[in-house]
Design a binder for these strands. Sequence first.
DNA 1: ACACTCATGTAAGCTGTTACATGATTAA
DNA 2: TTAATCATGTAACAGCTTACATGAGTGT
Lengths: 180, 180
Amino acid sequence: MVSLRYFVLGLLAQQSMSGYDIKGFLKGLSWLIGSPSGGSLYPVLRALRREGMVTMEVIPGLDRPPRKIYTIAERGRCDLRLWIEQPAEPNASLKAFVMRLLLASNFSDAALVAHLEQRRAQVAAHCHALNQAVAMPQTRDDLCQFLAIDYGVAMATAEQRWLDQTLDKFSGRLPSQEDP
Amino acid sequence: MVSLRYFVLGLLAQQSMSGYDIKGFLKGLSWLIGSPSGGSLYPVLRALRREGMVTMEVIPGLDRPPRKIYTIAERGRCDLRLWIEQPAEPNASLKAFVMRLLLASNFSDAALVAHLEQRRAQVAAHCHALNQAVAMPQTRDDLCQFLAIDYGVAMATAEQRWLDQTLDKFSGRLPSQEDP
DNA sequence: ACACTCATGTAAGCTGTTACATGATTAA
DNA sequence: TTAATCATGTAACAGCTTACATGAGTGT
């Protein structure tokens, strides 16, 4: 929850930026997570500054409007760490997952792996629910429902495969924790 | 846009239901498209009735609260057809796509194929954008960004595969339209 | 005694978008 | 001349969730 606030804070933890920079950066990822409108982004930045989470520096532009560069402060890093360390909500959307994934440099490697494993569990549960839905007789009759569920299963399966592969890459870095 | 309204209308076009039924039906698909809260669903049903899109019948329950069964009316079918025949917005979310897919029985076979092909074009564009993002040097440096984009590419590829397979199934039913 | 399911509904609040305003600069 | 980019910001609105209210029945 309160996702945009923490997401922006997380982006600023990686690099100091202006609001306009953030919008530009997110435009490239807009398909996955959307890019926030100015009407939501700029108020968030001001709120973060008011609360002492970030500091601001005005860079007067030659030939162009002045830019307000925001830099994360100590309080902001603390707040962000607290948010990141608490587990993801059980029914997190794809968007919420990718947003947390993007902030993963604020995780330790272990926490990143934990995040991925949480997601794997969620996707597995989802997959199971969809397969149960397929089993219901009324579902088979309706082509549209079948298509939607078939689509869901395909997506969930692909996501699981990606999660497994990615976890494999990271499991080598971690000392313990191997699941047969 | 105004998605919930048309989505509910589409569900009622397939089968007459009460608001509670709709919630129960969507709970099984909640991972894909979420299930609306009563606070949004019930007002939509009343609005649809007020506008003459649906009719309502109260079924008094023995031992239980009376149920209000909503049935789509002629006006509702017209409105729904108009909405369905207009093309999907270019940056439609996964959720919006699945919602339209679920209503596909209101499409002709040809319109369903058109819907799938629109989506394929969108996913292809998305894939292209992500691959460009991968090519940027600063992206390679940041592990998190790389992971997020890698995830996006994996999902998009899987979706394209599903779309191609599903289109293949339907292309046999249609007379013309074969792309080499 | 407590909590849950069935079934509908209302009101407050959060989050986000759209549409606008500013104002200089540059390209068609 | 018109539009677009740069860059920030405000106000109005749309859409949805949460939390609550009702009230009978059913299970532990």
